[in-house]
Design a protein around this nucleic acid. Structure first.
Lengths: 192, 192, 192, 192
DNA sequence: CATGAATGAGCGTTCATTCAT
DNA sequence: AATGAATGAACGCTCATTCAT
């Protein structure tokens, strides 16, 4: 049972072009870029855009889902690395750093992170992110690195409106400030 | 000799009504609310809005300035309390908590925080905020509580990304996570 | 039976200030200047402006009437000079030249000339202009200078289309082109 | 390879409908008619207006250009007729008469004539008008009919604010009054 | 009477969305 | 299925006019 539509080859190609163009345009000019501009950037007509995404909302959601997919890929790789001796806290830090870097995707990412709090439809990319992140957190806690009261919700809280600066220095500094709160070292908590 | 124009009693009342309505509407529906809606919420006609604020930009800026004014008041009180034995770190925490609470102002506040990085016109409310916050930081560092490498820019970084939730529990949790990074305890830094 | 209202001294002064300001502003920025701008230029508040002229139309009409008054003054002087041997055709030429010069009043004058076709309320300034101009025409025809078929309507026709340039050279050239059609020399007509 | 875009059949039809409606509306109610009114008169939505003419300015310019195009057609036909024995002065008179008749286009024509003094972009309709008119003038001068000092600028002067009456009688009379100034008969000039 | 703040219809323009080609 | 022209509600803003002070 394929998910409703197998999608012809050229249609799939168009879908990708649109998604890429949308990400770029939204990143470059904020979420208020016109549909026409996105269409032009994708090299298609508006009509085509609407054939793939019935409303602007749908397009934005698809961009976010696309982005979450990549995040999930990264996180699952991180989880895999745990088996080869990598330390969970370091992977978490790397994830945060990567998130902020990607967040050069700026405005769109905000909406994306906001979606982190939304309904995680089973098997959706959000579910994969959630699962992988939870694994990292629990492992980090087992290692004694991550503070025992840390949950997924904390990441939501921190990343919801993460600094969308494209300045690496700012991102690094933000990490420096925020990481202690997640660790046993920085916050000798109830369990310590 | 008031600053340029004494402003008639009823005009001043209207100005306040508009500012209040604008804050509420922007908080409720984001910065894209129509001027007509703000006017309706304020119980005046659009023309009146424009008499007081020549362009939407000016209105938003005024809302932000208004909010910064209150922040400055709070911060200066905090600075004053230092003289009576209050501890700077505690005042900083209180300030952050207050900021998040006020930030039920939601979207508008974001713009405000963003303005923290903007040009601090001398004697403007931003200048007052800056000055007071710097005093708190420096005092906290002299107390040995605040990490020596913390600067005003760090607050900008953190507050820019502050969760604009109106949930007190979330706000408290955010503070718990973020505070360690600002202290010598949480982050035994280079100086320690 | 004074014409409805004797008008207090200061009110009369205000009326004049407004009229002058209106002429200047309309001349300078076209007939679309805002009432506020005219009021400001007159040094009064809009309300005062509306007390004197219930609608913008009335103000413009008053400006035109004012201008016609001056024209009438000039024309009546011209008529008076006929008695001392002045030639009517020359006076007509002088009048046209003066009209064009005044027309540096530009846009407003157009409306004025247009009004020349409007209802000439008895004893109004338009009536004076009409009477004097008719006298000049008839005298010029008696002199054998002005073509016998020329009427007041011809002046309306020509002046309606007068170039509202402030360039004297253009005005002189226009006169050169137009004058022959009004004379027996230039147009050896049916009677000649 | 048409000039940039071939334009779909229906789009071209709409463009014409809009241009026609604009000419009519502007003629009827002056250049300040609302875009909505023009759109309604054309039987399209405002958006369509803006698709064809990005700003009101562009629409008005197009109306003028359209009108100049027709003028140019007429003038070039006149020039062509010179070869078949037609007299230049008569063609000039016919042109003026036609201009005034067309000028029932009223207000729009004013702007058009004003444009006559504007930059004659090469190959634009204005250029064609200029060229043809110059030919007529020069030929008329060679014929000994048109006064030797007459130039294109004189036509600009006369037509700039030509009587936009739609009354044929008025137009004929205006021509009668103005023509002598352009001829050697009416104005026995320096050369005569 | 003068003042100037308030009114609100109207304007030019944009843009998500629809639909004829 | 793709195209891009058409739609029309909505927006920010202006300005002649009214009316409380």
């Amino acid at each position: 049972m394929a998910s409703a539509r197998p999608l012809r080859a050229d249609a799939a190609r168009n879908r990708k072009k649109i998604l890429d163009a949308a990400r770029e345009q939204i990143a470059a000019h904020g979420p208020d870029v016109g549909m026409d501009e996105i269409a032009a950037a994708a090299g298609v007509a508006v009509g085509t855009l609407y054939r793939h995404f019935p409303a602007k909302t749908d397009l934005v959601e698809a961009v976010v889902a696309d982005w979450l997919d990549r995040l999930a890929d990264g996180l699952e790789s991180a989880v895999a690395r745990l088996a080869t001796g990598s330390r969970a806290l370091e992977e978490i830090a790397a994830f945060l750093r990567h998130f902020l870097g990607t967040a050069a995707n700026d405005m769109a990412v905000k909406a994306a992170a906001r979606a982190l709090g939304a309904d995680p439809e089973p098997d959706g990319p959000l579910q994969r992110v959630t699962t992988a992140l939870n694994t990292l957190i629990r492992t980090g806690q087992d290692d004694g690195d991550v503070h025992p009261d840390v949950t997924l919700a904390d990441f939501h809280l921190l990343l919801d409106a993460a600094p969308a600066h494209r300045d690496t220095r700012d991102n690094d500094r933000w990490l420096t400030l925020v990481l202690p709160g997640l660790t046993t070292n920085g916050r000798p908590g109830p369990t310590a």
